[in-house]
C-alpha cells in the first residue's frame, strides 16, 4: 500500500461541489425552462419557485466559479513543452495501448484546457444570466438570452464529458474531490511534475 498524499484541500473540494451542485441545478432547471418540462418543474414546486432556484444557484455558481480562480487559474495558464507532447498524444485517451505520458503538474493539460474553457463559458453564462435577471435593456437582454441559451448547449456537452473523465474514464480521480487524498504512486504517475514540485518524493 502506497503512502497517501493530499492532492486537494478542503476549500477546493467544497468549492468544487458547490460549483457542481449549482451547475446541476442550473442545468436541470434550465432544461425545464427551455423545453417547458412540467415534470421537472414540479420537482422544484413549479415554474415560479424553479426560477428562484435557478437564480440562487446562479449566484452560487458565479461565486464558486470565481473562487476556482485561486485554485486553478495560475496552473492552468502555465504551459510547457510537456503540454504540447501531452496534447500530441491525445492525453492517452485515443488508444487502448497506454504509453508513458509526459509528467503533469497539479492539472494535466486536458484539465487545464477544460478549466479555461469552463471558466470562459461560466463567465458568459453568469454575465448573461445576471443581465437577463437584473437589466431591463431590451437589446442586451435579448443578446444575453441568446448567449445564455447557446452556452447552455455547450454546457450540455461539457458537463457529461467532465463527469465521464472524472469517474469512469480515469478511475481513482474522483478521490481527489472526495477525500482529497490519493496514493503517492498514483499521483506520481499522473501528476509527476506536481509531486516533484511539492517535494513529495
Amino acid at each position: 500500500m502506497s503512502r497517501m498524499v493530499k492532492k486537494a484541500g478542503a476549500f477546493e473540494i467544497v468549492n468544487h461541489w458547490m460549483l457542481a451542485g449549482s451547475c446541476l441545478v442550473l442545468a436541470l432547471s434550465g432544461f425545464a425552462f427551455v423545453f417547458h418540462l412540467d415534470g421537472v418543474a414540479a420537482l422544484f414546486g413549479g415554474f415560479p419557485p424553479m426560477r428562484a432556484w435557478h437564480n440562487i444557484s446562479g449566484v452560487v455558481f458565479a461565486v464558486s466559479l470565481f473562487l476556482t480562480v485561486f485554485s486553478y487559474l495560475p496552473v492552468s495558464l502555465s504551459f510547457s513543452a510537456d503540454d504540447m507532447k501531452w496534447l500530441s498524444m491525445g492525453g492517452g485517451y485515443l488508444s487502448r495501448n497506454k504509453k508513458e505520458l509526459p509528467p503533469q503538474d497539479k492539472l494535466n493539460t486536458g484539465q487545464k484546457l477544460y478549466y479555461l474553457v469552463l471558466l470562459g463559458m461560466g463567465a458568459v453564462m453568469s454575465a448573461s444570466g445576471f443581465t437577463i435577471w437584473l437589466l431591463g435593456n431590451k437589446g442586451l437582454v435579448l443578446l444575453s438570452y441568446f448567449a445564455h441559451n447557446l452556452f447552455f448547449v455547450f454546457f450540455m456537452v461539457a458537463i457529461p464529458v467532465h463527469i465521464y473523465l472524472g469517474t469512469f474514464a480515469n478511475p481513482g480521480t474522483l478521490r481527489i474531490m472526495l477525500s482529497g487524498k490519493v496514493p503517492l504512486d498514483w499521483a506520481r504517475r499522473r501528476y509527476g511534475k506536481w509531486v516533484s514540485r511539492m517535494g513529495l518524493g
Binding site: 492525453g91 492517452g92 485517451y93 485515443l94 488508444s95 487502448r96 497506454k98 465521464y164 469512469f168 474514464a169 480515469n170 478511475p171 504517475r189
Partner: peptide
C-alpha cells in the same frame, strides 16, 4: 469511449 477504448488505467 469506455467500451471501445476503455478507462485510462496504467
Amino acid at each position: 469511449h469506455y467500451l471501445v477504448i476503455g478507462p485510462h488505467k496504467e
